[in-house]
């Protein structure tokens, strides 16, 4: 018999310290192995569970790999046209101000086709949460260059690396929205290590709690991987992210309680 190293005697309800939140459905996530979308979904769902707001939260899914987010969150969801999630969330929140409303968007959705909606929702100070998963690429459509693609980073449409002379500069949209008066909280997180996950969850919790204050947008960027688009196995992709993405997109709080962090 194969040794399993199981300890059935300690598997009792009072010893349970971690299990998948019920705010995620049992549907198998459509994401590639190791993709940070899955981890980010789980953190948002855990926050909704811990705040007891499962029946009082409406999410808006984007176009991108997370287009099917409504199959994974066991809450009320809408799915917006590409980039329009902040506009749809604006309408939902204004019509149903007692609900917790969030968008969940990739960088192609939020910082390319949806740039106008992002900036205006942030400038108007809509009382919503924006979860922004930045993997520097259009994951869903086959790894094309995004506005967020790093200088020199190879993608399927910049196979020799992004040449900023021809292809322009990457857009740090998170720093940009932090400048706008309508953002109340702006932070950049990651979900590649246990410590980073625990920190990101605190930030997402804070963002959701801010909605009770009615003081504007809480914007949480998660710098993430795209193993398929980057053409790296998951653990290597996370290393690449630490070495290349984090120097350009440094983690940490940018704006807290409406004040820029020095």
């Amino acid at each position: 018999m194969v040794e399993t190293f199981d300890k059935p005697e300690i598997r009792t309800p009072e010893n349970l310290v971690y299990s998948k939140t019920k705010v995620l459905t049992d549907n198998v996530l459509s994401y590639c192995p190791g993709c940070g979308h899955g981890t980010t979904h789980r953190l948002v769902a855990e926050v909704i569970e811990e705040m007891g707001i499962q029946n009082n939260t409406i999410g808006v899914a984007p176009v991108g790999c997370s287009v099917l987010a409504y199959n994974f969150f066991d809450i009320d969801m809408q799915q917006a046209a590409h980039g329009r999630a902040p506009a749809l969330a604006t309408a939902i929140k204004r019509l149903l101000p007692e609900r917790f409303v969030f968008t969940y968007q990739g960088d192609g959705d939020l910082a390319a086709i949806g740039t106008a909606e992002t900036i205006h929702a942030c400038n108007r100070g809509e009382n919503i949460v924006i979860i922004f998963v930045n993997n520097g690429i259009y994951g869903m459509t086959g790894g094309q260059m995004a506005p967020t693609t790093l200088p020199g980073m190879p993608t399927s449409t910049s196979p020799y690396g992004r040449d900023t002379q021809i292809m322009g500069n990457p857009l740090k949209i998170t720093e940009l929205v932090a400048q706008l008066p309508g953002t109340y909280m702006v932070t950049r997180q990651a979900v590649h290590t246990p410590a980073a996950v625990r920190k990101a969850k605190k930030a997402i919790r804070q963002a959701f709690e801010n909605q009770i204050l009615n003081k504007g947008v809480s914007f949480v960027e998660v710098v993430s991987n795209c193993n398929s688009g980057w053409k790296l196995p998951p653990v290597k992709a996370n290393e690449w992210m630490v070495n290349h993405m984090f120097p350009f997109y440094p983690l940490g709080d940018i704006k807290i309680n409406g004040e820029m962090v020095k």
Partner: peptide, 19 residues
Amino acid sequence: GCANCAVVCPDGVITVYRA
């Protein structure tokens, strides 16, 4: 039972017990 594995698993595959 530190749950490190479970919190980083993108697919929520792991359940953790500690005693």
